[in-house]
Amino acid sequence: MKRKSIFRLTNLGAVAGLALSVSVLPVAPAHALTFVPCGNIAALRAAITASNTSNENIVLAPFCTYTITNTANTDDGGNGLPSVTGSFSISGFNVTVRRSAATGTPNFRVFNVESGGDLTLNSIHVRGGRVPGNVGGGIRVSDAGSTLTVRGGSIRDNDAGFGGGIRLREGGSAVLLNTLVSGNDATGSGGGISHAGSSLRVDFSRVLGNTAGLEGGGIRTTSPGVATLRASVVTGNTALGTLQGGGIYEGPNSQVTLDSTLVSNNTPNNCRPVGAVPGCAN
């Protein structure tokens, strides 16, 4: 018997755009769907809050930008959207969710996945998050049991103290599939991604043009982090600290594995410590 999806429309005029967004969704018959009209941050916040309890998947309007101008909460440096504690997806088609670049906008990251939360982003671009002195400018994945999956989108132009684009804390895990991590900055380590979680998988993705003030311009792992990059590219990243690793820095008691992955043209080198990442030409 076929299971029917349930749509809760917060704006009847948005039905036309809904059909295109739904076409890119993975099959998830156990979840209902909540549609959020283009640019409606209040509705997006309400949908995330509801989905933390109901686990309903969320659909955003295709080709739309959702611009956040203030914080949903001030936890851990501030978050533009309610923290994720449920298990659900947010899907769109070439959709951007961003912190406003306007003068006077407070500092906050875009997404925060708390312990036990499971967030999937489908064709979503996360941009402009800013948490100086804190972690995870674009997305923070916090503690045991928290999970992030990004498919077909990007994490771009975010900055933080550590993990300019993404920060995985101990116990958190992430999968990036066909994803661009680009233009992110960390004053500390991990310009693109700072990984101290349980596992990080980067498949068919690009880590491009990120900068760290310390080590790991593209990716920095720390104990007990295990990272696997498959059929991906890490290039054009920069590390400015003494430990370096413009592309990848593998910290003590962590592990990075490259599978058909190119790490090249990073500054001042590709991987550090020398020989720590098998298959990386230092």
Rank of each mutant, 00 (worst) to 15 (best):
A281F: 08
I193C: 13
A42G: 00
V175P: 05
A42Q: 06
G209E: 04
V234Q: 08
T228Q: 01
T187I: 14
A30Y: 14
D143M: 14
T211K: 12
T85S: 14
G137C: 01
G192R: 12
V135Q: 08
N94R: 11
V131T: 12
G152P: 04
R201L: 12
G153W: 05
A281V: 08
L119I: 13
R230G: 03
R220L: 08
E56P: 09
A196H: 12
C271L: 01
I193E: 14
E114V: 14
G86F: 08
S23T: 10
G209H: 05
R206C: 01
T222C: 00
G247N: 02
R45N: 00
N184Y: 04
G117T: 12
S154H: 03
D185A: 13
N57K: 11
A28T: 15
N253Y: 15
S123R: 15
S182I: 12
T235C: 03
V24D: 07
R201N: 11
P82Y: 04
A32Y: 10
G279C: 04
T53S: 09
S205I: 01
G78E: 00
A47P: 03
P268T: 03
V141H: 14
G116C: 11
G86W: 04
G171S: 10
F88N: 05
V36S: 05
S91V: 10
N70D: 13
A16V: 05
L18I: 08
I41A: 03
V131Q: 02
I248P: 06
S83C: 09
T49Q: 02
N158G: 07
G92C: 11
G183Q: 07
P132E: 00
L200Y: 08
L200N: 10
T120F: 07
V256L: 08
S173P: 06
G153C: 02
L148Q: 08
P132L: 02
G188S: 09
S254G: 09
R151H: 15
P273G: 00
L208F: 12
R151I: 10
G171K: 15
F63L: 14
T149R: 10
R156T: 13
A19P: 00
G217Q: 01
V126M: 10
R151Q: 10
R206V: 07
L200D: 07
N107G: 04
G163N: 06
N282D: 12
G163L: 13
D118C: 09
T187V: 13
G251W: 15
G190E: 09
N70Q: 13
N266I: 04
V84S: 02
G129I: 07
F93S: 08
A186Q: 01
T257Q: 13
N79R: 15
V95H: 02
N107A: 03
I219H: 01
S264D: 04
F111V: 08
G165T: 06
S232A: 05
V36K: 11
I193P: 07
